[in-house]
Write a protein that binds this DNA or RNA. Structure first.
Lengths: 250, 250
DNA sequence: CAGTGGTCTAGACCACGCT
DNA sequence: GCGTGGTCTAGACCACTGT
């Protein structure tokens, strides 16, 4: 049999052909990105997909399992295969690394402090967001509360081109990543944090109700969507006396 | 066909039977832990393993691929399947998260400052290592150098029962985890870091050649071996002015 | 060339969740 | 009971590596 391909959009010229299961994976991702299947929706069964793509059920299975490993799909035996929705405990904690010392992880509340279009944008922010000069950026700052204490200040920078409608939003939910997914069709897939220790500036101290000069954890985060777009650049400052940043590596 | 099991050591009573590929995985891990196959060694081919275990080649493949995903094995097409050796760039960086700002990741040098058996051990250390009172603990402290600067102080606590021979060692290599693996048959499989920001104490400042009161990253690490033993408890203090702790989540 | 892992197929049976 | 995903098999062919 000759190698197959469902969709020749990508390979006008003679590129090396991907394995079939990879092609299925990529096509499924594309359909999710294009909102053909939305978060929470059920996909067709393995057999249906197999016949649509003209491959065997085992090949579809390999693709779906791989996407399940990378948290893009969720499978439930006896029920079906679903597009992951970033709700539910596991998904919500996945990208939130702060834990109160000696406590179980808990989701913080968020208090919006500012939301506006930036008039001028530093080149650091532009670079971090992968934007060209003069592209517009939305600024959102929040204060988060864990265990009844202010724990974290977030300065969030969002490319205006993806989040235009955000400025008209009345209420902004606490769980931003789920909000990005449902409201803007941007599924967070990867984050890169750079963590440093700094001293609290006067403004930090005031907002967190601590003393100036206390040590804080500062982490900058770049956030990527399913299709590899940079969708967010954050600078976070966090009290470190009763909270820590948790990293599991396995 | 009735469910199989190669080895009834584990299930004297009537426990729920694991899937075959899981049983293969666990048995392979056991053989590695028992040093039947040592780091770097090649495993038998899929067909050989399949006939030894009396399962199909596909089942063995599923097990081996899963162990490859979790970095326990390394497979090379056309060559064979090998027990991962914690050497080679990727493996060495896997558990070393510190990066100099604006530079490519680089492996630091290490300078041993102390190596001794602790006379008394705090309960915090005992608990972190999962030891009972009166169990002995080895203390190893090091200073690490990245880009020609002191960047990191490590206080490493090791259960004496696993590392007895360490005290007689003349030279301790820079890459400890590879050393644990080859010298003590302890393969590092998982680490948990808790990160905080603290101020440099006088002793930190002196050792790192910085000013007292500078903000430092402090991270405590608990390290687990392949078979789930706790093999290390570290308290690290790191300069944060020109270095950061990097976390990729995907 | 022989031997290895990588891909793909086709089909059997099981375990689970729903109705 | 029916449809779903989960496990397992057997066998074909491909791609890579080393001799």
């Amino acid at each position: 049999m000759t190698p197959k391909q469902f969709d020749n959009k990508l390979s006008g010229s003679s590129f090396k052909l991907q394995p079939l299961y990879k092609q299925v994976e990529e096509h499924v991702i594309q359909l999710i990105v294009e909102q053909h299947w939305k978060p929470g929706e059920m996909l067709p069964s393995e057999f249906e997909l197999a016949s649509q793509y003209n491959v065997s059920q085992g090949t579809v299975r390999k693709a779906l399992n791989s996407l399940t490993d990378s948290k893009i799909l969720t499978r439930r035996q006896g029920v079906g295969t679903f597009v992951s929705e970033h709700t539910g405990h596991q998904a919500l904690y996945r990208f939130f690394p702060l834990v109160a010392d000696g406590e179980k992880p808990e989701l913080p509340k968020a208090e919006v402090m500012q939301l506006r279009l930036l008039k001028s944008v530093s080149t650091e922010i532009l670079n971090s967001l992968g934007l060209k000069a003069k592209e517009k950026v939305i600024f959102l700052s929040r204060r988060r509360i864990l265990n009844g204490e202010y724990c974290l200040l977030e300065d969030i920078h969002l490319p205006y081109k993806y989040f235009k409608e955000l400025l008209d939003e009345e209420e902004i939910p606490h769980t931003l990543y789920h909000f990005y997914q449902t409201r803007f069709n941007l599924t967070v897939h990867k984050t890169v944090d750079k963590i440093k220790a700094v001293l609290a500036r006067a403004s930090d101290a005031k907002a967190l109700e601590i003393d100036r000069g206390e040590p804080l954890l500062k982490f900058t985060r770049v956030t990527y969507s399913l299709d590899g777009k940079i969708i967010e650049y954050r600078v976070n400052r966090c009290r470190s006396d009763r909270f820590h940043y948790l990293v599991d590596l396995e």
